[in-house]
Structures are given as C-alpha cells and as structure tokens.
Design a protein around this nucleic acid. Structure first.
Lengths: 163, 163
DNA sequence: CGGTACATGTAAGACGTTACATGATTCA
DNA sequence: TGAATCATGTAACGTCTTACATGTACCG
C-alpha cells in the first residue's frame, strides 16, 4: 500500500514520470522516508495501471514509458493522506543492537556505539546537503531523528566510559 | 536474520523460554525495537533448532516447549552484535505522510499533523511506563526518538498555523 | 461450566531483496 | 569502440501479515 502511495504522491507532485525517473526520486529525495528499487517499482506501476490509478503513455525513446496519475489515483492518494492512522511498527536493527548492548563487555559495547555514532554522523551529512523543495517537512523530521540518534550515541558512550 | 538475532538475544538474556514466552517479550519489552508475532516466531525457532542455534526440550505441560540457546547460537549472536554494520533502511509511513503534506490544504495538513502528534503522545505514554531492566539503552533511544517526533509535530503545527 | 489465558501450529498472499538478463544512447 | 548511463524487465527467495485451526489449564 505505502509503495503505491509514495508513487502516486511523486506523480502528483512532480508530474508525469517514467519508472526510471521514479526510481531516481526514491534514491535521492525519498530515501529517508521510504525505500524501493526498480525491481519493485516497475511491476507495481503495471499493477497500478491495471487498477486505473495511473496511465502509461506509448513508449518513447529507449523504451521509456511515461506514467501519469489519473483522477482516481489522485482521489485515493488524497484519501490516504487525510485518513491514514499513524501506526508504530518499528523494525530497527540499530535499536536491536542497542537493546542487546548489556550482553557485551564495556569495551565491546563502546566499540559498537562508536560505529553506530559514525553511522548517524554519515547519515546526517547526507541529509544536510539534501534539497528541501518537496518533502521539506519530512526532511526536518529526518534530520531531527538522526540528530537524536547522534546525541543518544554520545550520551551512551559517556555512560559506558564512566562505568 | 534480525528476527534470529532478537530471539537469540532474548534467550541469552533471560534464559530458556518457550515460543509463547518469547512472543510476549516481543509484545512488551521489544516492541519499540523489533516486531514479530507467534506465527513468525514458532517456525523460526524450528529452523534455528535445525541449524543448531537452539535446543528444544521435550514437551512440558500444555505442549509447552522450552528452547535453550546453544554455544553455537551464542557465538553467532556475539559475532552479529560486535560486527554488524549499521544500515539505514527507513520505511516510515508517518514520514511519508509528512513528505506529502504540501499536497494538502493548510487545514487538512493541520488535521493530519494533529493526528500524528496524538500518535506520538500515545506512544510516549506507552514507553514511559516500560520497565527499563534489559534494553535500557534501546529504551532511552526509543523515548528520545518519540519525543523528537512530538517536537517535530508541534513545530510543524506552529509553522502551518502561521501560514 | 464458561471465559480467559496458555500454548502451538499451518497456509495463502503481500511485500521486499538479490541476482540475472537485455538492449539503446551518449560521450570521450 | 568502449564505458557509463539510460531504461525495462523476470525469477527465486526470504520476510511479514492475516486468517484459519486446535487443544489445555486455570479461575471464578
């Protein structure tokens, strides 16, 4: 469902696009929100066309297919955006590592948290030089979450070191 | 992989347990880190036993089966905890909603962010009365992330209202 | 004796990843 | 002409959800 919404949202926001274009959008502007590769996107667009949510133009240069959102697609997107209830399904490998830190020695735990900290820092660097055109609100949320992770790593290192 | 790690970690931390016990742990102490229901946990334990990571005792009362982590299981758990590289795969429906907020009218966007804010507040209430025995570090991280989400909602509401 | 919690499972389908496969265009 | 990028797809496999299915023990 969410993949559909993301694709509809991009088509609504940036206008008609190919599967290839949409894949690039996922890599660059949507990557801190949702992830999908072309092997998931191409078949989904075909199904969405079958369901009347998008329309495919005839093939252009290099077999390029341009998809356009339909009014039914726009309607379903709007309904989802306005009515979707927030669900908190968390599946976070880093948090799992953090959960199990007490099973490690202090030295091992410090090394692990150092690595996590470096990961958050790298992530922050990526988000910091991200254009804030569409998705400005989500980018702020993403930045805040990553900074929180970085702070957690610093506090946890301090706690482990004073043990 | 991560489901295995979570199960091995619980068995290592709390000692031998049944699939039912582990399912309850997922519901109560691991729910802000990883999620899995009994329909995923029972078959996974069978596979893990086949792979020599856990051992099942003969059946107890009410068909209860107690699993114990093996030394090979403990070894693989330790290796993962120490060597796992952080990956940032984000698939966050709330962030997707936030990403697409600009497609809504100000009134609609405010209503959506109010709902998200209430969701974060409810989540915070759940985490706040969570025992911090095992998983103390992850709980701190979870709490910090939820508070950050709540702050983001408040700032975003302020920005939308002054528009 | 009836409801709740205990306790385990299977199966279908949706969703996501990785590997494989193909061909066109552009630019150095 | 060779490499990079554009552009699309399939198939196998793994993970996760939902629905179905069954039976035991305890407590009021």
């Amino acid at each position: 469902m969410s993949l559909r919404i993301a694709l509809l949202g991009l088509l609504e926001a940036v206008g008609p696009a190919s599967g290839y274009d949409l894949t690039k959008k996922f890599e660059h502007s949507l990557n801190h929100v949702w992830q999908a590769g072309h092997t998931q996107i191409y078949p989904e667009l075909v199904k969405m066309a079958a369901d009347g949510l998008v329309e495919a133009s005839s093939e252009g240069v290099r077999g390029r297919k341009i998809y356009t959102i339909t009014s039914e697609g726009a309607r379903q997107l709007h309904t989802w955006l306005v009515e979707h209830e927030p669900v908190f399904v968390v599946r976070n490998e880093t948090a799992l590592q953090a959960f199990l830190l007490p099973l490690l020695s202090t030295e091992e735990a410090i090394a692990v948290v150092e690595r996590i900290k470096a990961g958050y820092a790298a992530r922050l660097a990526v988000l910091d030089c991200q254009p804030a055109d569409l998705g400005q609100y989500a980018l702020r949320l993403g930045l805040a979450q990553v900074r929180t992770g970085l702070e957690w790593a610093e506090e946890t290192l301090a706690a482990l070191r004073s043990r």
